[in-house]
Design a protein around this nucleic acid. Structure first.
Length: 405
DNA sequence: CCTCCACCGGAACGTGAGGAGT
DNA sequence: ACTCCTCACGTTCCGGTGGAGG
């Protein structure tokens, strides 16, 4: 009896190693990041000489290679540190996970063999445990704070304490690398933290289409089997992603999904049409995800626009119309309705998310209003909205109103 | 040119959840 | 374990407004 998965793993033969296309993969060659790599290495090399490296702030939008670059440089540094015997280690902390002062220090203390419960202790006690732990030996520690902007709001204290910790240590040396994709986040910071954290700054600009092409080619060589890629595929992926702010992660996703689609359709090669399909697919998923994570009230507002869209034979609606429909939906759902003022704000949020399009216009005698229209295909939104058990009940509303109209 | 519609959008305030401080 | 503080979410109140119709 043939194994169920036999066909599935042998089938296609387009990919040699799909993992290479994942964002978590760290390539040994990062095209177009020579300057940033050597800049960072230059700063961190102080640690190998037993000095304290400057703190570094790294800026760049998503998919510009920040994390990959930092991880690459850390690996190299640790390797060198082992060779030369300088006691130098790097700690990677994702600030989205460890998002309060307590969590950061509790985690750090644990790394240095100090047992601390994840909740319950006073924060300063955890902090001093961490200090004791780290100061036990003569060493350099470089703490990498990925997505520091997340810490800036809830855990600014953590940043402040970390940045001045060196003055309280006798043996160990600590430096910080902050990675942020928000270019303006230092403006929210305490000036003392700002100046200390940003001793050095490295900027990661978005990639343009040519650079994305190089990156894709670099990885495609390993990820795909020979001659399974149509010539136009990589340039097309690069072009699509370049339109979307030069995000390399997007470009890699697009290439991977294109390959998967080609494989599933039993094609021997990845062609342009697969890329186009993949692009649509990814976009649809993106919208679905955004809609899914919307709070209930926003979903109801969005659903109101959706319902108006099919009942009337026009595409744009005044705030009044949307609000009335919204009230009816709330009534059917036994959900407490928000005020018109609040709904106006929700509409603006949906506008920013790109789900609806809202423009203020004046209709003279007939008042001044926002014209609201759905700006994504109905079929992307509707199935996701109906997944909400509460909104399921609303699908009946349509039938009823259609009869009465 | 003036009016007045139907809403816009700023400001001040209330409230509950949850982290920080003690 | 307790209170204090902050922040997101909502509400109330209200001054402001572009332009069709008189």
């Amino acid at each position: 009896m043939e194994n169920l998965f036999e066909n599935l793993i042998s089938g296609g033969g387009i990919f040699a190693d799909k993992e290479v296309l994942r964002a978590t993969y760290i390539p040994e060659n990062l095209p177009h990041r020579k300057k940033q790599i050597s800049g960072l290495a230059d700063i961190l090399s102080a640690a190998l000489k037993g000095e304290t490296p400057s703190n570094v702030l790294i800026y760049g939008k998503t998919g510009t290679g920040k994390t990959a670059t930092v991880k690459y440089v850390s690996n190299e540094l640790e390797e060198m540190s082992e060779k030369t015997g300088s006691n130098c280690s790097l700690l990677y902390i994702n600030s989205e996970v460890f998002d309060t002062q307590y969590r950061v220090f509790a985690y750090l203390a644990r790394v240095f063999n100090k047992w601390v419960p994840m909740i319950g202790w006073p924060t300063d006690m955890v902090y001093s445990e961490f200090k004791k732990g780290i100061d036990a030996k003569n060493r350099s520690v470089i703490v990498i704070l990925d997505e520091v902007d997340k810490l800036a709001s809830k855990g600014e204290e953590a940043l402040y304490n970390l940045s001045r910790i060196n003055s309280e240590l006798n043996n160990a040396r600590v430096s910080l690398i902050g990675i942020s994709n928000d270019l303006t986040f230092t403006e929210l910071l305490d000036p003392r933290v700002k100046s200390s954290l940003g001793e050095e700054e490295i900027i990661f600009p978005p990639y343009n289409a040519e650079q994305l092409q190089d990156i894709l080619e670099e990885r495609a060589g390993k990820a795909f089997n020979d001659s399974t890629l149509n010539e136009a595929v990589i340039p097309l992926c690069a072009a699509f992603a370049a339109q979307e702010h030069g995000d390399a992660r997007r470009a890699l996703d697009l290439l991977r999904v294109s390959g998967e689609i080609a494989e599933r359709s039993k094609s021997k090669k990845v062609c342009e049409e697969h890329v186009r399909l993949a692009s649509k697919n990814i976009e649809k998923n993106r919208i679905a995800e955004v809609v899914e994570t919307l709070p209930l009230q926003s979903k109801i507002v969005l659903n109101s626009v959706l319902l108006l869209n099919r009942e009337k034979n026009k595409r744009r609606f005044s705030s009044g119309e949307v609000y009335n429909m919204y009230l009816r939906l709330c009534n059917h759902l036994s959900v407490e309705a928000l005020t018109q003022r609040r709904v106006a704000d929700l509409v603006s949020e949906l506008d920013i998310l790109g789900l609806v399009n809202a423009v203020v216009i004046s209709r003279g005698r007939y008042g001044r209003t926002k014209e609201i229209a759905l700006s994504v295909p109905e079929e992307c939104v509707q199935p996701v909205l109906l997944e909400d058990y509460k909104l399921k009940a609303v699908s009946n509303i349509r039938v009823r109103t259609q009869i009465t109209l």
